[in-house]
């Protein structure tokens, strides 16, 4: 029968493929993005951020960057930036999702926490010429985003996506470039949910308030490698100063330097490192910085 009737055959084939489909794809609509998933702090995108998101899609950044911190400890450590793993509620305004399937570059789900600078100076320099910041990077240069942003559809987008917006938000679009929009989007990612870092954690680290590393030579190699990993992109490979000031020696005390590195000066673009560097490592870097003090 089946072998002979193509109409019955395709109906049966359809039914067979709909079983798994119904259970694993259709049924989950009932609870994914439901009240249990919602996180009150997570806000929809502003018009500028949404424009940035659309540019991210246009440029296909998702082909190299993922946007989900998996529940694995190493993922949280590397890409959490003080936050935890990604939760469903962080994505409820994402149409489409941009989780990606490849990490040619790092995960960006919480990138806003890594570069807190409100002016986005690091992003600007990096987007214009990634290799000027990270020499071995294979990210393309996006200097061509330095053109005025097309805002024709900005308001329609908000309406279509049912995101709240104000006249001030729309005024904020005036004079902005595509670069500004994509940076605004980068800065938003991961920053809605407050991260408890700041002072409490920092003072916890301070008890051995004296630098344990007096012998520079023993730690120099470690310290240099830490510096080039975490600091060189803003202070220069040779500590000569680029986006941030030069760090060849410092008049500040060891303890003060420790505090700056641990807590950051976020308003001016210096990130806090108390979640990504432990006490020992910070002291090593401090020792290195003080090395050339005259």
């Amino acid at each position: 029968m089946l072998e002979k009737n193509p109409v019955i055959f395709i109906i049966l084939a359809f039914v067979v493929i709909m079983v798994g489909t119904s259970i694993t794809m259709i049924a989950p609509f009932k609870w994914i993005n439901g009240p249990g998933d919602m996180i009150a702090e997570v806000k929809p995108y502003t018009p500028l951020q949404q424009e940035g998101r659309d540019l991210y899609m246009r440029e296909g950044c998702n082909n190299c960057h993922s946007q989900t911190v998996r529940t694995l400890a190493s993922d949280v450590e590397r890409y959490g930036y003080g936050g935890t793993y990604s939760k469903s509620g962080e994505f409820v305004y994402d149409r489409p999702h941009l989780w990606g399937s490849r990490r040619t570059g790092p995960d960006l789900a919480h990138i806003g926490l890594k570069y807190p600078d409100p002016k986005g100076a690091w992003h600007r320099k990096h987007m214009e010429n990634p290799q000027s910041v990270v020499p071995a990077s294979n990210m393309p240069s996006y200097a061509f985003l330095n053109v005025p942003l097309d805002t024709t559809y900005s308001e329609r987008k908000m309406k279509l996506l049912k995101f709240p917006y104000t006249q001030a938000d729309l005024n904020d679009l005036k004079g902005k470039s595509e670069m500004d929009a994509i940076i605004a989007y980068m800065r938003k990612l991961g920053t809605d949910i407050p991260v408890k870092k700041a002072d409490a954690a920092a003072t916890q680290v301070l008890p051995t308030a004296s630098n344990p590393f007096k012998d520079v030579e023993a730690i120099e190699k470690d310290a240099k490698s830490l510096f080039s990993q975490h600091c060189a992109s803003c202070h220069g490979e040779k500590r000569e100063g680029t986006l941030g000031p030069a760090l060849k020696g410092s008049a500040k005390s060891d303890a003060d330097l420790f505090k700056i590195i641990s807590q950051g000066i976020e308003a001016n673009g210096m990130p806090s490192f108390n979640t990504s560097l432990d006490e020992q490592k910070i002291w090593k870097i401090v020792t290195l910085i003080k090395l050339d003090t005259k």
Partner: peptide, 30 residues
């Protein structure tokens, strides 16, 4: 079946649309 469902969306204009699904749902459908 597959192609039609995953392409569902709301057009903004001729060259741009937004997915009919959001976030984790969209990922699951994708």
């Amino acid at each position: 079946v597959l192609y039609v469902v995953n392409n569902l969306g709301v057009p903004l204009h001729l060259f741009k649309s937004y997915s009919a699904f959001a976030g984790t749902n969209d990922a699951n459908v994708q």
